[in-house]
Design a protein around this nucleic acid. Structure first.
Length: 341
DNA sequence: CAGTCGTGGTA
DNA sequence: TTACCAAGACT
């Protein structure tokens, strides 16, 4: 049941400039969008950004034109809504797992208003096992807001995007850039890693995005909107395909000759290990099991069905309360529960 | 600002 | 097998 139609390959620029994606992309950079507006004097490293940029841009852009994946949300027909849906799903989730859910989602809800017309529980159900189901709730909430506040069209202004539930700094910039061809620093984990290595000369970026990283990203941003949007997609793709967290392949990197980290002998990451997640036994695991039961049931389920997923009653109750508090589960009369209607 | 929030593939 | 990682957002 491969629902993916055999679409013609499209250039990355096609999606960026797609006029059917919504409001016309800006052709003139807005006021104050210059990269040199930050008040503080350039930090070490940033002042050489101009030099870096000239060395990095052309090879990375050319590499992208040749190696970019043909992902459905990059096709012209995806539109701004398709881009936005993909960005929600891709938050902390690999492309391979997003693809099938994305296709079904867009087929069922081709416009924001289509999703907004349904109860949020349907979004949670269709989210399937993508993880972090609050994203489904937020995407539904964003669709409602777009329908109410923006006439059903995904807004093109960064500030308006940022005001939608589930959209933070990264996603607002990504939608504005990928869907509307605007000039924004799109700082995701891939781009941060590429910059950390090529420019800063370290293996990994800091745990949390820093002001210095934002400043560097702005300094590296090409001047015109079209090239900036192209660069955003290209630098991200390089991090996703070549300059990966583990097993990076410098032999396939178009800027390996300029990479500060590689030229320094690829020194290992200094400092504490990344993070300790340990999923087994956490509330998150219990929440996941509880919600799975609700998702797979057509109607409300009884307390006994939920009790069966976890042996420890205190943690189980806490997890269920959390799901209800988050709006992911709706309690009914008589100890029954369902996805929100 | 550090914690929380799912899930599954891979080294 | 354990641990890390995958286009973050929110509190």
């Amino acid at each position: 049941m491969t629902a993916i139609p055999p679409l013609p390959a499209s250039t990355p620029e096609a999606a960026v400039n797609d006029p059917s994606a919504g409001p016309r992309p800006r052709t003139v950079p807005g006021p104050g969008s210059g990269a040199d507006r930050a008040g503080a004097p350039d930090a070490a490293g940033v002042e050489t950004a101009g030099t870096r940029a000239s060395a990095l841009h052309a090879p990375v852009l050319a590499w992208f034109d040749q190696h970019a994946r043909d992902l459905p949300w990059r096709r012209p027909e995806a539109g701004a809504w398709g881009v936005m849906v993909s960005e929600f799903m891709l938050q902390q989730t690999p492309v391979s797992r997003v693809l099938p859910v994305y296709e079904q989602w867009l087929a069922r809800w081709p416009r924001p208003a289509d999703l907004a017309a349904e109860p949020s529980g349907e979004a949670v159900r269709a989210w399937g096992r993508l993880g972090y189901p609050r994203r489904a709730l937020r995407l539904h909430g964003a669709a409602v807001a777009i329908t109410e506040r923006h006439g059903g069209d995904v807004p093109s202004e960064h500030a308006q995007l940022l005001a939608l539930p589930g959209i933070g700094e990264y996603t607002a910039a990504a939608v504005a850039s990928f869907a509307y061809g605007q000039r924004h620093a799109v700082l995701d984990t891939n781009v941060r890693r590429v910059f950390a290595r090529t420019v800063t000369g370290v293996q990994y970026p800091p745990n949390a995005t820093t002001a210095a990283e934002r400043k560097l990203a702005r300094a590296l941003l090409p001047d015109d909107d079209t090239t900036a949007a192209h660069w955003a997609a290209a630098s991200m793709e390089l991090g996703a395909l070549v300059c990966t967290a583990r097993n990076e392949d410098c032999s396939r990197c178009p800027v390996s000759g300029h990479c500060a980290w590689r030229l320094a002998g690829k020194p290992a990451h200094e400092g504490p290990a990344r993070r300790g997640q340990t999923y087994a036994g956490t509330d998150r695991q219990v929440r996941g099991r509880l919600l799975a039961v609700l998702r797979e049931s057509a109607g409300p389920v009884g307390q006994a069905s939920l009790d069966a997923v976890w042996h420890e009653p205190v943690q189980r109750a806490r997890a269920l309360d959390g799901l209800v508090a988050d709006g992911l589960v709706e309690p009914l009369e008589g100890g029954r529960y369902r996805l929100p209607g």
